[in-house]
Amino acid sequence: MTNILLLMFSAIFIENFIFSKFYGCCPFLGVSEKPDTALGMGMAVTFVMTVSSAATYGVYQILAMFGLEYLKTIAFILVIAGLVQFIEMFLRRFIPALYSSLGIFLPLITTNCAVLGAALVNIQNGHTFLESIAFGFSAAIGFTMAIVIFAGVRVRLRGANPPKCFKGMPLALITAGLIAMAFLGFSGMSIG
């Protein structure tokens, strides 16, 4: 149990997907204009990443049976894309409220590298089934935290008056770098 809690803490803070591994930078920069939409994106990623961690664990076991581990990346992309489509249809039919709140974010993360990254890291670190789900969930929580923090900062940046050459994306990138450096503080902690 402590093992899983440590794994989750480490996935959220120390090995934060965005600030230390640099996975999922595309939605991080693209969907962080407003805290509300950032939270929506984070929720969608959390949902998909948790489910896909479980699904890819199963798929990997099938691949391993046939000695096809080297094809895991392609298989994962296929499975995740199919899974997201399936979840989308399922939600639209049975939980329309959740569907409309996740909205366009669900199809957007079909090919999100953070989701694929979580699946691959699970394999790399030899996580068990439970650990895989815990890691996927907490890595996504870390992603959500990062994107919401960043969206909050960007709201303040919008009113700022920087030199013209820094306006918009350059300033956003610099800010993201500064937050990443702050998160570097966590990597000094050794856990386990």
């Binding site: 798929v59 691949l63 392609i74 499975v79 199919g82 399936f86 249809m89 399922f90």
Partner: peptide, 19 residues
Amino acid sequence: AVIVFAVLGGAIGALLAIA
């Protein structure tokens, strides 16, 4: 590899079609 991926792809495709 071909068989596994054909089955995997077919299964996902069928699942989505049914869904």
